[in-house]
Write a protein that binds this DNA or RNA. Sequence first.
DNA 1: CTGCCTGCAAACTCTTTGCACGAAT
DNA 2: ATTCGTGCAAAGAGTTTGCAGGCAG
Lengths: 159, 159
Amino acid sequence: MSTEDARVKFRTHLAAQGLRVTNQRIAIFDAAFGQKEHFTAEELLAHARAIDDSVSRATVYRTLPHLIGSGVLREVDIGKNLKYYLPNTDSSAQVAQVICVDCDKIFEISAPFMSWYGSTVSSKLGLTPVSQRLQVSAHCDSLKSAGVCKHRAAVSTQI
Amino acid sequence: MSTEDARVKFRTHLAAQGLRVTNQRIAIFDAAFGQKEHFTAEELLAHARAIDDSVSRATVYRTLPHLIGSGVLREVDIGKNLKYYLPNTDSSAQVAQVICVDCDKIFEISAPFMSWYGSTVSSKLGLTPVSQRLQVSAHCDSLKSAGVCKHRAAVSTQI
DNA sequence: CTGCCTGCAAACTCTTTGCACGAAT
DNA sequence: ATTCGTGCAAAGAGTTTGCAGGCAG
């Protein structure tokens, strides 16, 4: 999904909900899609303000649910009392996160077997899965030796 | 691991760290092991105070890391800005959580394949897994029809 | 015009911390 | 006796909300 596709999706979602397309909401959208890495609400605020300095923290927090609800943004909670966000380039993919406990980077890894797990739970327990998350906290072997995580390229790794 | 085993393990852990075995710490331990379900820090405080009313909120928060560090308690973060705790009856088991989005209950399900996932990540990406979590949010099919979740018995289900 | 949307700041929730007193060893 | 542990209350981090004014439709 391109940024332009996402923008249309977001505007359509707003319209469908009877919500207004304001400069602030668009600035927040643009700020989100200008990020390369996972970002926090506070970082999103800073980037949105660089685009439109009238954006307030409250509006960022009020807009995030709409971005997530429209499917253009994904929320990632890694258990740090702080949520991370990421443009959702493929909303149908099942992804796991690998969190480097040394450098705090978050890697997204395609994990299609998660759907299998969901349906297994479903059939065995009489549950209807809504969402799943699989996260691995790990030490980065190359970090200690090389001083940097060399796994940035692993983002699209499939397991 | 029985409650008595856990108590010994906790006391041993405290002693090994040069920490004191105080009435409050024991009261908090007993309160934790008197719970049948997952509980929050606030609930633990209430139960600990029922045993020893001198226990303060601060001491609960200061004791929780020791309970977890000694392996008698497990922390479960389901992304609700609120942590849950659970007596750790088998510290070697790989467990996933199924969270009912209707009744907020948390079910623990043995998921041994998670170790396979961890080692796969390890070998493919050059990472050393520290911990893993797998959580499924789901609707409880029987909740709407029967009015209650019928999956309490599923706690020990293995997938 | 109408009423949703906004910024501001205060409120809120959960957790952590500084301090002086108290208790375990 | 010493040192660690404690309760209290205030601080802290992240997020939410009430309010009066502002702008999209």
